[in-house]
Simulated assay, not measured.
Amino acid sequence: MFSITINLIQLFQLIVLIFLASILIKILKLFCKRWKLIAAMKPFPGPPAHWLYGHALEFSQDGTDLDKTVTWAKKYPYGHQVWFGPFTAYLAVYHPDYAKALLASSEPKDDVVYRFMLPWIGDGLLINSGQKWHRHRRLLTPGFHYDILKSYVQEIAESTKIMLDENGIGLSDEDLRAEVDTFMFEGHDTTASGISWLLYCLAQHPEHQQKCREEIRELLEGQEKFEWEFLSKMPYTTMCLKESLRLYPPLPGVSRKLSKPLIFPDGKQVPEGRIFQNLLLFEQMIVNRAPTSINPTLRCTCSLLKLDSCFAISN
């Protein structure tokens, strides 16, 4: 009996020892991860971070979070590290040279930030990636092509058939719901936000509002209705719209996770596995002027796809 008791105590001690050892190993792995993160982020200094909370306490969720981001972007115009806790770090990039290096790559969406929206809009095009994303994109593209606006009802009906019957393999009910929720969010909400900010910008700058009004009045003179072709004949109004989107983008950032090292034009390198947040606030710094002022005439050649032209104009 005494021997059995001793064996039980030894077994209990062994279990406790194994348990403590496993916890210690996990702690060591976490700290190894932190050391690697610190080394990876070292070339990109940022605002001071709390040793435990990181920068989490800087975001008070009182409506001023993006203001904090703008402040950091001004102080660190190329990019900087952002910590959420001691073991999670992002690299926020702003400068066009950095953004081009990231956006020109085929890196996948990160598996942290976008997953927060999964319960809201489902696993649609905004969130999914890989083969599933390519398949959904192929099936959905006919239903949302730009030319559909010309013959709205008939084309939508035909495209719906294509989505459901192409190659005999359509989207499941769950997939369809996720894509509808995604397009409601990406299309309806963002469009409403973009229009609202455009009206706000024009109200703040009546001189540009008057030019838009004159352009549209001239275009509609003698016309009984607004035609599709008129959309390409409103250059000044279009430039005002793009300026508004530059200043107040409905979706101010994208996030990517590196599957391979990324080298920036200045030679700085980030290893694979790191997560980027490319905040589109960098567009405010493309031209050499106050980032909150409006100058539609610069929009004729300025775009995210023609950054060199923007620099040529600003210099």
Rank of each mutant, 00 (worst) to 15 (best):
R135E: 07
A192C: 10
I169A: 14
D175I: 01
I121Y: 04
E158M: 05
Y200L: 04
A178M: 09
H145W: 05
V180G: 00
I162N: 06
I169M: 11
H136C: 02
H188R: 13
A178P: 06
E186R: 03
S151K: 12
S159C: 04
N167R: 13
C201H: 08
L118G: 08
N128E: 04
G170Q: 04
K150R: 14
A192I: 07
D173T: 15
V153C: 06
H188C: 09
L125S: 00
T182V: 02
Y152V: 10
Q154K: 14
S159G: 14
L164G: 01
E186G: 09
W133M: 03
S196G: 13
T190R: 04
F185L: 15
R177L: 13
N128F: 03
V153R: 10
N128Y: 03
G170L: 02
G170K: 02
S193R: 12
T190F: 01
I162F: 10
E166K: 12
N128A: 00
A192S: 14
H188K: 10
W197T: 09
F144N: 07
P142W: 09
I121N: 02
K150Y: 00
S159I: 03
K161R: 12
L176N: 06
P119Y: 08
L139A: 11
D189V: 12
W133I: 04
F183H: 02
L118F: 07
G122A: 03
R177E: 14
L125R: 10
D123W: 13
L199P: 00
T182S: 04
F185H: 08
G194E: 03
M117E: 07
L164T: 13
E179D: 01
H145I: 13
G168M: 08
Q131W: 05
L140F: 04
H134W: 11
Y200K: 12
D173R: 07
L164C: 06
Q154Y: 06
E179V: 06
N128C: 15
H136V: 00
D165V: 06
I195K: 07
M184D: 01
F144I: 04
R138V: 11
G194T: 09
S172Y: 09
I162Y: 14
D123R: 15
L125H: 05
N128S: 03
A192D: 10
I162W: 06
E158V: 08
C201Q: 08
G124E: 00
D123H: 15
D181N: 14
V180F: 14
V153I: 14
E158G: 03
N167W: 07
T191M: 15
S196L: 11
L125P: 00
D175Y: 01
Q131H: 10
S159R: 01
Y200T: 03
S129M: 06
R135A: 05
D189C: 10
N167D: 15
H136T: 01
R177M: 13
A157E: 15
L149Q: 01
I169K: 15
L118C: 05
L126G: 01
L198Q: 08
S129I: 01
L199E: 08
F183V: 00
E155S: 11
S193E: 01
E166A: 11
S159P: 02
W120G: 03
